[in-house]
Computed example of a mutant assay.
Amino acid sequence: MPSPPLTPPSPPPPTSTPSSLPPPTSTPSSYPPPPPSSESSGEQRVKCKNKNYPQCYGLEHTCPSACPHQCEVDCVTCSPVCNCNKPGAVCQDPRFIGGDGITFYFHGKRDQDFCIVSDSNLHINAHFIGKRNQTMTRDFTWVQSLGILFGNHKLYIGAKRTATWDDSNDRLSLSVDGQTISLPDSEGANWQSILSAGALSITRTKNTNSVEIEAEGNFKIKAVVVPITEKESLMHNYGVTEEDCFAHLDLSFKFYALSKEVSGVLGQTYASNYVSRVKMGVVMPVLGGNKEFASSTIFASDCEVARFTGEIATNDFSNNFDHYASTMNCASGVDGRGVVCKR
């Protein structure tokens, strides 16, 4: 009689598994979660610092690829935005975004000063540094420092000359009425004084190379010292060498008390009757006018379009402009060449 067939051994019972996955970490329902960490890419991480937006306050974000090292969080939309893509920005070569939202370039000349804002109670000169490319008819230029007149005071903001860049080494130079201002290398470090023209405060927004300066009722300036990187030099054929990384300022401005007659390279774009003179539809719309905007020194108010008297004009219209600006929705173009603003 044949043997009965062998019965295969029963398989071991399955390993127990949780009945359900752990619940996801909760995030505010009205905002998308911040992007994952990108420390390996070297991109900067930024947070909303305005406690008036509790659903966004403290959430960390990665700077966009268009500005991996210079951005801030718009707490209203809870998203990172490039500092240099907003009206009032002056960055790079130098690239201006006017109060009207139109992007243009003003190259000026190296080792010379040009008035970028001139009004009755505010005059701002920019000192340009640069390098000549022998295949071009102009200098590559960047804003190295600002000389600011307001009331009867003088404020200086500058980037110190630097060979090899190290962001942990502060290269900012600050002075008020000839007095050097020294701040600890710590985010949030603050200097303030009550001047005849009102309160003035200077606050570090990073441990080094970045400050926010506000003159009560007059202006707010965000200034960041940045170098020309090797990658930028190769891309744009700047020819920057190891002897000088051309440390310069990337800037953003907000004004509280401009008059209708404000002028200057940037200031004129806030005037009530301003019509842009730049040629639109080109890759680099350039504004001329070296002669009319040239100043003799960093603190001189002798450019052809100067308006400075040290007193606030009676035809101030800042409140109207602030209302106009607050009703605009601005975003950078797809290729990053401009800003589009809509009511």
Rank of each mutant, 00 (worst) to 15 (best):
T15P: 10
L21D: 01
S26R: 07
P28E: 04
S30C: 06
Y31L: 00
S41V: 09
G42F: 11
Q44P: 06
N50V: 05
P54M: 07
G58M: 09
C67A: 14
C67T: 12
P68Y: 10
V73G: 09
V76I: 15
N83V: 12
N83I: 10
P87M: 07
A89Y: 09
D113Y: 05
D113W: 00
D113H: 08
V117M: 10
H123R: 04
F128H: 02
K131T: 04
T135E: 12
M136G: 00
M136L: 11
R138I: 10
L149K: 15
Y156F: 15
K160Y: 06
T162H: 10
T164E: 13
D167T: 14
D170L: 01
S175D: 03
V176G: 00
Q179L: 05
L183A: 14
S186K: 13
G188L: 06
W191C: 04
A199D: 06
T203K: 11
T205K: 14
E212W: 01
E216T: 14
G217N: 01
G217F: 03
N218G: 03
F219H: 06
I221S: 01
A223C: 01
V225N: 08
V226S: 11
E230L: 09
K231Q: 14
Y238C: 07
G239T: 05
V240R: 09
H248I: 12
D250F: 06
D250K: 05
D250E: 08
F255L: 11
A257H: 13
L258G: 11
Y270W: 01
M280W: 05
G281Y: 06
P285T: 14
L287F: 02
N290Y: 04
F293W: 09
A300S: 13
S301V: 12
V305L: 08
A306K: 10
A313F: 04
H323K: 13
M328H: 13
A331C: 13
